[in-house]
């Protein structure tokens, strides 16, 4: 049989490799086992402060609309439906089923018991030094269903 060749250019495919969720989950499991749960949160905060620096600046300048735009894009990219309620001082996000958790469970990847921190620690870090704060109001470990609330600091309320 002659040599088989596969030749691809970047434009030939869409960039969407959901198995990366499984790699991240394994990383969180490793961090928790080796260094403890605080290391998981420390790492995620450090990543969020660095990588989301442009988003953090936008949040400070434009408010919660910047966060809403990002979330719409992220969940749309992964084929998930979400509900957003955007007000002047509050953004409520309802995710019926987390696409990352769904993918990992469907493909037999281990789901870190600290997966919720990819929402809570990350969003808390994004909100640092802004007028806003973040609460993970509800999170279902099995499906990743969640209710997320961004709100102006000092504002009380319930989702």
């Amino acid at each position: 049989m002659p040599t088989e060749v596969m030749d691809r250019r970047a434009a030939d495919n869409e960039y969407l490799h959901k198995d990366f969720h499984g790699a991240l989950s394994n990383a969180l499991i490793y961090l928790e086992e080796r260094f403890g749960p605080d290391a998981v949160r420390d790492y995620l905060r450090q990543f969020a402060r660095a990588y989301y620096a442009p988003l953090r600046a936008e949040l400070r300048e434009r408010g919660l609309a910047a966060m809403a735009e990002r979330l719409r894009q992220v969940y749309a990219d992964e084929g998930a439906d979400i509900e957003l309620e955007l007000g002047d001082d509050e953004l409520i996000v309802r995710v019926a089923k987390c696409p990352a958790v769904s993918h990992m469970r469907a493909h037999g990847h281990r789901v870190s018991r600290m997966w919720r921190e990819t929402i809570s620690a990350v969003n808390e870090a994004i909100c640092e030094d802004s007028a806003y704060d973040f609460d993970l109001v509800d999170f279902d470990e099995l499906t990743g269903r969640s209710v997320q609330r961004f709100h102006r600091r000092g504002e009380e309320g319930s989702a």
């Binding site: 960039y15 969720h21 991240l24 420390d42 987390c98 990819t118």
Partner: peptide, 22 residues
């Protein structure tokens, strides 16, 4: 949620974090 499209920077920052630890 960290999108799978954002995993690579998260991976790179993880390596940096681990190197800082040990």
């Amino acid at each position: 949620m960290i999108s799978c499209k954002e995993f690579i920077p998260a991976y790179s920052e993880l390596f940096r974090y681990l190197e800082e630890r040990g």
